[in-house]
């Protein structure tokens, strides 16, 4: 037993070492970072975090990211729920083909769409708004949500729908008050993946915003390429971007296992 656990432990170390390095660096002083190699912070400082929480260009990055990510999650789930229901409950001509074809949209490279989106948004006048990024991310998140939700809906017996129909429920009322609560685990998993994708996506978020809706990742990469290269500050900003994901993962950890078991993630 002891010998067997060596490999997982080594792996965990390999996985966590870079994360540790990032977090440790965020607490080091600039002098210490530049002076050379050290495993622990010699003088512990919160200077980098103080800068982030007081400098508007930094903390607005976080606020912008959170706004468009939430907006995107709401839009994606709202659009995906009825579509997933249609695919799960009805048989129509070419339904399977359409289902997979829509799903594969998700594989589309963001780079292809960056320029046309840029032109479209500039023309409509929503360039550099939170809505611009949220809508662009829908392209990837709606197919994924439909795919996840359809899996969860498949597990709900059709008798539920039929009973509600016989009982005289109208479709919208049935859908909102009975069906959605039944698959709320699925909604949670789908929302999680929308959140994650939108939170980590950089290319579209970077090219479709300039100032007003600039995401934190773009602020970071800009700082990373500027002359000073303030590592401590960047490390702190990086550490802070990991936290929302970690919190969300903690909440949905049991559902995710289910999502993986269905091969739907």
């Amino acid at each position: 037993m002891q010998k067997r656990s060596i490999i997982p432990i080594v792996y965990i170390l390999f996985l966590l070492l870079p994360i540790y390095w990032l977090v440790a660096m965020s607490f080091k002083t600039t002098n210490e970072i530049l002076s050379g190699f050290s495993l622990f912070p010699q003088t512990f400082t919160l200077e980098a975090y103080r800068t982030i929480f007081t400098d508007p260009t930094w903390y607005w990055g976080y606020i912008n990211s959170i706004i468009y990510v939430s907006l995107n999650t709401v839009i994606s789930i709202t659009v995906a729920l009825p579509a997933a229901y249609a695919f799960s409950r009805y048989r129509f001509l070419g339904d399977k083909t359409l289902f997979f074809w829509l799903l594969t949209n998700r594989m589309a490279p963001a780079a292809v769409f960056a320029l046309p989106f840029f032109q479209l948004y500039s023309a409509v006048g929503i360039f550099d708004t939170h809505l611009a990024v949220a809508l662009a991310h829908c392209l990837f998140n709606i197919p994924l949500s439909v795919w996840i939700l359809e899996g969860f809906m498949g597990g709900v017996p059709k008798e539920l729908d039929e009973t509600a129909y016989v009982d005289g429920y109208s479709f919208p009322r049935f859908f909102m008050t009975i069906f959605i609560p039944t698959i709320k685990a699925g909604v949670g998993v789908a929302a999680f993946f929308c959140f994650m994708f939108s939170w980590v996506e950089l290319l579209l978020a970077k090219t479709l915003t300039a100032v007003a809706a600039k995401p934190i990742a773009a602020t970071m990469t800009k700082t990373a390429s500027s002359a000073g290269y303030e590592l401590g500050l960047l490390a702190a900003a990086g550490t802070l971007t990991i936290i929302p994901g970690a919190i969300v993962i903690w909440f949905v950890r049991n559902y995710i296992a289910k999502g993986f078991a269905m091969g739907r993630v």
Partner: peptide, 27 residues
């Protein structure tokens, strides 16, 4: 598995930043 998912939650630019720090010239 939860622990592994955390790595999944790290944004590519942050992962890139970690890499850049590990190969930083001075330290």
């Amino acid at each position: 598995k939860t622990l592994l998912m955390w790595v999944y939650a790290i944004a590519p630019p942050v992962a890139g930043l970690m890499g850049a720090m590990l190969v930083n010239h001075s330290n």
